[in-house]
Simulated scan of single mutants.
Amino acid sequence: MSRTRRGALIVFEGCDRSGKTTQSDLLVKHFEAKHIPVKHMKFPDRTTIIGQMIDSYLRKSQELSDESIHLLFSANRWEFRNQMEKLLNSGTTLVVDRYSFSGIAYTAVKGKSFEWCKFPERGLVKPDLVFYLKTAVNSLESRDDFGTEIYEKGEIQKKVAKIFEEFCEKDSEYWRMIDGGRSIEAVKGDIVLEADRVLEEVKGSPIELLWPVD
């Protein structure tokens, strides 16, 4: 009996308004055109009760402590953890707009240690590929609707960008830095090449977990 070829977990990370939604949409359409089973996901998922609490915080209508909002973001990802693993094992590729690394970066810039920020993420599904869309913060500030949510401030975005760059250096085996300041088509071209390659690479490999506890 042939074993179902597993899907890949492909994540897009970057500062706010850096083009993650546009490029993740385009990658999903690329896979659909090739008849590859694919599902588009976005975190936070604001459709759940936890997600609605997060949405209220992000839109500045509810105050929460740094610890509380960090754990809510993590809990929102855990709500979908089993579903994600099941879909991957059934052959569906997941294209995800933001994941654990955003949760870590946005809390770490408030002064929390990396270990504290990483702990609730341990055991979630590890991505096979992470695209970091690097874009100059001054260009982000000029984009539509920048500033409507709590973290959309230039000084925060600069610190977050630095943390994403550190992830790229430390975890270069599955992180790819993409110059997001170019045309949409140029960025898409680089992304598609890497994504197609990874789909082939993971087909016979097991799913791994983020920072598993010994």
Score class of each variant (00 low, 15 high):
9 L>G: 01
11 V>G: 00
13 E>S: 06
13 E>D: 11
16 D>V: 03
17 R>V: 01
18 S>Q: 06
19 G>K: 00
20 K>S: 03
22 T>C: 01
25 D>C: 06
25 D>F: 01
25 D>T: 04
26 L>T: 07
26 L>H: 02
27 L>S: 05
31 F>R: 00
32 E>H: 10
33 A>W: 05
42 K>I: 08
44 P>D: 10
45 D>G: 03
45 D>H: 09
45 D>S: 07
48 T>W: 06
49 I>D: 15
51 G>S: 08
51 G>L: 05
53 M>L: 15
55 D>I: 03
55 D>L: 10
55 D>N: 15
56 S>R: 07
56 S>P: 01
57 Y>R: 01
58 L>Q: 07
59 R>K: 15
61 S>H: 12
62 Q>L: 07
62 Q>H: 07
64 L>V: 08
64 L>G: 03
65 S>K: 02
66 D>N: 14
68 S>V: 12
69 I>R: 00
69 I>V: 11
69 I>P: 00
73 F>D: 00
73 F>C: 01
74 S>Q: 02
75 A>N: 02
77 R>K: 02
78 W>D: 04
79 E>V: 10
82 N>Q: 15
82 N>L: 14
83 Q>V: 13
83 Q>G: 15
85 E>Q: 14
85 E>W: 03
90 S>C: 12
91 G>I: 03
95 V>M: 07
98 R>H: 04
101 F>A: 00
102 S>C: 08
104 I>K: 02
104 I>M: 08
104 I>L: 08
104 I>S: 02
112 K>Q: 12
114 F>E: 15
118 K>N: 11
119 F>I: 10
121 E>Y: 04
122 R>V: 14
122 R>T: 15
124 L>Y: 09
127 P>N: 06
130 V>T: 11
132 Y>T: 04
133 L>W: 02
135 T>D: 09
137 V>S: 07
137 V>N: 08
139 S>Y: 06
139 S>E: 12
140 L>R: 02
141 E>I: 09
142 S>C: 08
144 D>H: 06
144 D>R: 08
145 D>S: 14
146 F>W: 06
147 G>Y: 08
148 T>D: 13
149 E>D: 14
149 E>H: 10
152 E>D: 11
153 K>R: 14
153 K>A: 12
156 I>T: 07
158 K>E: 12
159 K>N: 09
160 V>N: 02
162 K>S: 06
163 I>D: 01
166 E>M: 08
168 C>R: 03
169 E>T: 14
169 E>P: 03
169 E>W: 11
169 E>G: 13
176 R>Y: 10
177 M>V: 13
182 R>V: 05
183 S>W: 14
184 I>L: 10
184 I>K: 11
185 E>F: 09
186 A>R: 14
186 A>W: 14
187 V>W: 04
187 V>I: 15
192 V>F: 10
194 E>V: 03
195 A>I: 00
198 V>H: 07
198 V>Q: 04
200 E>P: 06
201 E>G: 01
201 E>N: 09
202 V>A: 03
203 K>S: 15
206 P>N: 02
208 E>R: 15
210 L>D: 01
213 V>G: 13
214 D>M: 11
